[in-house]
């Protein structure tokens, strides 16, 4: 990939909620770079701060600390018209296709709204543009006059994708775009996103709790836990040779399609600790099977292992890292 200006640069972003004395550390120092045309997956359990990070990136909420650069320009301090102007470069696909479409608007009005906002083309052209967008996401033109409640979940999510594409953004932020859909529909929507990504060369940040899903579509994976980045690297490497125990646990949690494929699994127990009172040392140590004394006292920094992989674990590289875990991800 040729070196170009990164579409998105997130630099040590922190987002705390509540009283500054004892805040909820939803996002606690995340850095992330996405290059043009690249798909990066952000993976982690519910409540690890991945959706918050997505919202902060779009400046739907302000970061407590840190910098966000969109297509080379710092948007951290922007507001009002300047922010609105930059926002068209990054568009979002939402998790819940039922709640993210205005129930009182037709599909055409929904997809047209961004075009009207930025006065893209002449008003008559926008209608044609909407029709083209609908075709692009696999909906026939007749859908334009329908209301969201007349559509299925998958069709609604296609409308949401068409809306996100309307402004020809440089990056699409997909916040768990398939987790609210039927399993049978998921593959269709994921394939649609992949096609669009390839065809238009748009970059994508794909937020998901399911590492199995993102293995198919991302170039790189970032694993988050309790607001911190645990591991990041090329998808292939992360899947085949996960270094962080948490990443391995996530991979172990992927169900296999046949009992004969079952392998020894190390599943996580319990729930993540409260982000308002994270554990001392490594945030993962209370649930980690490998935890040592140093894990309880010192917080591991993200350090590079070469090959584009970085891990925040004292014990990495793990001795048995080249396990067979990834073979089950097809």
């Amino acid at each position: 990939m040729p070196e170009a200006v990164a579409v998105l640069e997130v630099e040590d972003v922190v987002r705390h909620y509540g009283p500054p004395r004892r805040p909820v550390r939803a996002v606690d120092g995340i850095s992330l770079t996405i290059r043009p045309g690249e798909t990066v997956a952000l993976v982690g359990e519910s409540g690890c701060g991945k959706s918050t990070l997505a919202r902060v990136i779009l400046r739907l909420e302000p970061p407590t600390h840190g910098r966000i650069r969109l297509d080379g320009e710092d948007i951290t301090e922007l507001s009002g018209a300047a922010l609105r102007d930059r926002r068209r470069l990054a568009q979002m696909v939402f998790q819940d296709p039922y709640a993210s479409l205005d129930p009182r608007m037709t599909v055409e009005a929904i997809v047209r709204e961004p075009l009207d906002n930025y006065r893209v083309g002449a008003p008559e052209e926008r209608r044609i543009c909407v029709a083209a967008l609908l075709r692009r996401v696999g909906l026939v033109e007749e859908f334009a006059e329908r209301f969201p409640h007349e559509l299925s979940g998958g069709q609604r999510q296609r409308v949401g994708i068409a809306r996100a594409l309307a402004l020809q953004p440089k990056i699409i932020i997909a916040d768990e775009p398939v987790s609210a859909l039927d399993v049978s529909i998921r593959a269709q929507v994921i394939n649609l996103l992949m096609d669009i990504q390839r065809e238009l060369g748009v970059a994508m940040l794909f937020v998901s709790h399911d590492i199995g899903v993102v293995a198919h579509l991302s170039h790189r994976i970032c694993v988050m836990y309790l607001g911190r980045m645990m591991e990041t690297g090329p998808t292939e490497t992360i899947i085949r040779r996960p270094q962080h125990p948490y990443t391995r646990a996530l991979l172990d949690a992927i169900p296999v399609s046949h009992p004969s494929l079952r392998r020894p699994r190390r599943l996580l127990e319990g729930t993540p600790p409260s982000p308002s009172n994270p554990p001392q040392g490594c945030r993962f140590h209370p649930r980690c099977g490998f935890a040592q004394a140093c894990c309880r006292s010192a917080m591991p920094e993200l350090r590079s292992l070469g090959g584009g992989t970085s891990v925040a674990c004292h014990l990495a590289p793990l001795a048995d890292a080249s396990s067979t875990q990834g073979d089950h991800v097809q």
Binding site: L60, R88, M92, S100, L101, P103, P114, N117, R163, L167
Partner: peptide, 9 residues
Amino acid sequence: FVTAAISVG
């Protein structure tokens, strides 16, 4: 859908 409206400007 309000968040979506904000994000499309």
